[in-house]
């Protein structure tokens, strides 16, 4: 925990001297009719979704985006470079988390006002790194990749899934299978989603193992976990929540991909109710 610094990070020597290259960005959006003309003080804040490892903006488009727009929220989802229909696939082998942070920052500056950031899994970690330099309206972390680094998970992974562990260490994408991501989907649907998963940057995966700093976050934070998550365990969720001084919200019965799994409605309403109440 001592690695988690709470004060502003001013010196960003790396970003100044070797700035991230740019890549084409896929940004999906649904803006409810009339929203843009409504007074800023009363209209609902925009929500920006950031996907997790090997996913893409499509995972939000499936259920959450239309449902949240239905509730009056302008919703946006970005595909990080090398994912979904964004560019940068060829350079994936040279992509770091800071490139993902850059992609999210670029997307943010195109939004008409400060969004609520909703990050899933690795996207939750990226969102936290974004919040270290930018003040979003709110920060929702769903089944978040652990801020303290996932290295402690490695022995377990090696014991339970030695082949997967070897693959990750060799720079391959962590295999994500239907039984790890979902608890309540029919086989065909689950297979269809798993089919859409892409590759992940080996360097980003290595970075997930390391501890990361969190900044002086000044906005409301929501941390959501599920006891039935087979990718991010309960301890990781608890540590992340503790770092922000909040209690996690637990959603038993839903799997890691809570925007796609059966019960996604429940998970979405937890997030949107929190936005309505706190942000």
């Amino acid at each position: 925990m001592s690695r988690l610094r709470r004060s502003s990070k001013v010196m960003r020597l790396w970003d100044w001297s070797v700035p991230p290259t740019s890549a084409h960005r896929e940004v999906l959006s649904i803006v409810p009719e009339g929203w843009i003309d409504a007074p800023r003080a009363t209209r609902k804040p925009p929500i920006l979704f950031v996907h997790g490892l090997a996913h893409g903006a499509w995972c939000w488009r499936e259920h959450w985006m239309p449902a949240a727009a239905e509730r009056g929220f302008p919703v946006y989802a970005v595909s990080l470079r090398g994912h979904g229909d964004s560019g940068g696939r060829k350079r994936l082998g040279r992509t770091l988390l800071r490139h993902y942070v850059h992609d999210v920052m670029q997307t943010i500056t195109e939004l008409p006002q400060q969004p609520v950031l909703v990050g899933h899994s690795m996207g939750a970690l990226v969102s936290q790194l974004v919040a270290d330099r930018y003040s979003p309206r709110g920060l929702a972390l769903l089944t978040p990749a652990p801020i303290q680094g996932a290295a402690y998970e490695m022995p377990k992974l090696i014991r339970k899934r030695p082949l997967d562990a070897a693959k990750v260490l060799a720079g391959g994408t962590l295999p994500l299978r239907a039984e790890q991501l979902f608890t309540g989907l029919d086989e065909a649907t689950a297979a269809r989603y798993v089919d859409r998963l892409g590759r992940e940057s080996p360097w980003a995966q290595y970075e997930l193992l390391l501890p990361h700093r969190i900044g002086p976050v000044r906005c409301p934070v929501l941390v959501v976990g599920t006891p039935d998550d087979r990718v991010v365990d309960e301890k990781a969720v608890e540590v992340t929540a503790a770092a922000y001084g909040v209690d996690p919200v637990w959603l038993p019965g839903i799997g890691h991909d809570l925007m796609l799994d059966g019960g996604w409605e429940k998970a979405l309403s937890v997030v949107l109710d929190w936005v309505d109440e706190r942000c």
Partner: peptide
Amino acid sequence: TKPFTQFPDFPMPD
């Protein structure tokens, strides 16, 4: 150039 000139919480467009 952009990286250092811009506001750190609002980068200039790519």
